[in-house]
């Protein structure tokens, strides 16, 4: 058991938890942009920085990244000190300059006292904040279809060599996890277009509703060790079918 002082409150947590985990469990909000519980902490957006120092420390507190810093017994943590707020404001100011058209960033920045950026705004219209959630979720799923290309401010998310993403399964996990809606796709009942690829949709045998792409079906079936024809119907059809089976079974028993 670990006991810490977070913002003057005693917070108890377990070994192996991060400062962010502990704070959130205690209902203390720390903003994040590149964090997702399905993925390994990344530490890129720097929004979740907090000040931390051991209780007996005489020196200045350290500015640490709460999504990665492990909880330690006796730690004194400040999640909203002036130093922390200054760092967060600057990060949001910088992100707002990069993505002035992103509603998510605009709202978050405004909430932190940055109504407009103090830096020259980018004019490329990109909403990508390079949080890499898309790359990381794609890797987590096992597709490894997209990733960061280039470095510095020219870094961007791309398929290898900017060609159609060969390993993409069209699952849209990247687009869905993207906090700013930067990753675009097109979709009809028959097909889905993303990362330069066009995927055919598997449709519900009963209702004809699109379920997933053919590639996603193969991929997921293989991972789960299930036959491909396991994935054939929409939940609603399966519910009705199950209910009918049960009703029939009871009929026969009676």
């Amino acid at each position: 058991m670990i006991a810490m002082d977070i913002d003057g409150r005693r917070v108890v947590t377990e070994e192996g938890r991060t400062l962010l985990d502990a704070a959130r469990e205690a209902g203390i909000d720390i903003p994040t942009l590149c964090h997702h519980e399905a993925l390994e902490p990344f530490g890129g957006c720097r929004l979740c920085v907090v000040e931390a120092a051991p209780a007996d420390s005489r020196g200045p507190a350290e500015l640490v990244i709460s999504c990665l810093a492990p909880a330690r017994d006796g730690l004194v943590v400040r999640t909203a000190s002036e130093r922390v707020k200054e760092a967060r404001r600057t990060v949001l100011d910088l992100l707002l300059a990069r993505c002035p058209t992103s509603d998510v960033i605009r709202r978050l920045a405004a909430e932190h006292g940055v109504p407009r950026t103090s830096f020259p705004e980018s004019t490329d219209g990109s909403k990508c904040i390079l949080c890499m959630l898309c790359e990381r979720v794609c890797a987590k799923i096992g597709a490894h279809a997209i990733g960061g290309a280039g470095k510095s401010r020219g870094k961007r998310i791309a398929a290898p060599f900017d060609l159609a993403a060969e390993d993409c399964i069209g699952c849209l996990a990247c687009a869905r996890i993207c906090p700013t809606g930067h990753i675009g796709y097109e979709e009809t009942d028959d097909e889905r277009k993303i990362w330069g690829r066009t995927f055919r949709m598997v449709k519900c045998e009963v209702t004809g509703r699109p379920l997933m792409t053919e590639e996603q079906r193969s991929f997921e079936a293989k991972r789960a060790g299930l036959p491909e024809d396991w994935f054939t119907k929409c939940p609603e059809s399966k519910r009705r079918e199950t209910a009918e089976t049960i009703a029939k079974a009871f009929e026969e028993v009676r």
Partner: peptide, 21 residues
């Protein structure tokens, strides 16, 4: 140094760029 930033974290990637500007 702005050009040598790997681009992973915001303060270095964006901050050095604006400092240089």
């Amino acid at each position: 140094l702005a050009a040598e930033s790997c681009g992973k974290c915001v303060p270095c990637r964006e901050g050095l760029h604006h400092l240089a500007e």
